[in-house]
Amino acid sequence: MAGPKDHGKGEHDYPAWQKAWAELLAAGDKIEVATAMDWPAKEEFQKADAMVFFQRGDWDAKRAAEIDAFLERGGGLTYLHWAVDGRGDVPGFAKRIGLAADSGKIKFRHGPLDLTFNTDAKHPITRNFDKLKLVDESYWLLTGDLPKTRELGWATEEKEPRPLFWSVEHGRGRVFVSIPGHYSWTFDDPLFRVLLLRGIAWTAKEPVDRFNDLVLPGADVAK
């Protein structure tokens, strides 16, 4: 799920990401990929195992009802970067995804991120991850009540650890969120790809190593 590009070159390039990652995921074994702009069609909510959102977030009662029904039947959701914007109903969005952004209240920073992971949680998404360096954008002062046990990875901003990766569960439904994803180059980083592909697989209740063969294809790692 993508939306109109809303930043400069190589930033928030939702359409380019959608094209590249639809091709990447479709190369996986026994994977059917559908794409859409703005919002999934009704029939996609009925048949999809997992959905990935990379766009500017938006939220209202209709979207809440469709997402709630999707989670109730055991669907998986992944939200990347600015997809956590909760414009329309930030608290309502946060109840579904753990933390959501109020664009008038959050803080953000572009640049190097030194990530530390929650090794105590022993979550399959972050298995064998302890530290990771990225150059991307962090958000903090988000709205919501996310238990510490659901936080998967942090970066320090204003002398405090701020969650940048997390997961939540609603009954049979699962949600994975990654705040990194501002720059297109982040999606070429093999270790970020491992986290994202594991997250998508986890939300779909597949083994987290389901997409290991997709970590490198198409990635610009020469830089």
Rank of each mutant, 00 (worst) to 15 (best):
residue 2 A to E: 09
residue 2 A to G: 12
residue 2 A to C: 10
residue 5 K to E: 05
residue 5 K to L: 04
residue 16 A to I: 08
residue 17 W to S: 06
residue 17 W to T: 07
residue 19 K to P: 00
residue 22 A to H: 08
residue 32 E to C: 14
residue 33 V to R: 03
residue 34 A to F: 15
residue 37 M to A: 10
residue 39 W to S: 07
residue 39 W to Q: 08
residue 59 W to A: 00
residue 61 A to Q: 11
residue 63 R to S: 02
residue 67 I to L: 14
residue 71 L to Q: 09
residue 73 R to N: 10
residue 75 G to V: 12
residue 75 G to H: 10
residue 77 L to N: 07
residue 85 D to G: 03
residue 89 D to I: 02
residue 91 P to A: 06
residue 93 F to S: 02
residue 93 F to V: 02
residue 96 R to M: 07
residue 96 R to D: 03
residue 97 I to E: 01
residue 102 D to K: 07
residue 107 K to M: 14
residue 107 K to I: 11
residue 116 T to G: 12
residue 116 T to F: 07
residue 118 N to P: 11
residue 121 A to F: 11
residue 124 P to Y: 10
residue 126 T to Y: 02
residue 127 R to Y: 12
residue 127 R to M: 12
residue 131 K to S: 12
residue 131 K to P: 11
residue 132 L to V: 00
residue 133 K to H: 12
residue 152 L to T: 02
residue 154 W to Y: 01
residue 159 K to W: 12
residue 166 W to D: 06
residue 167 S to R: 06
residue 169 E to R: 14
residue 172 R to V: 08
residue 172 R to F: 11
residue 183 Y to N: 07
residue 184 S to R: 04
residue 186 T to G: 04
residue 192 F to A: 03
residue 193 R to C: 01
residue 193 R to T: 00
residue 201 A to R: 09
residue 205 K to F: 11
residue 206 E to I: 04
residue 209 D to Q: 13
residue 218 G to S: 01
residue 221 V to D: 02
residue 223 K to N: 13
residue 223 K to S: 13
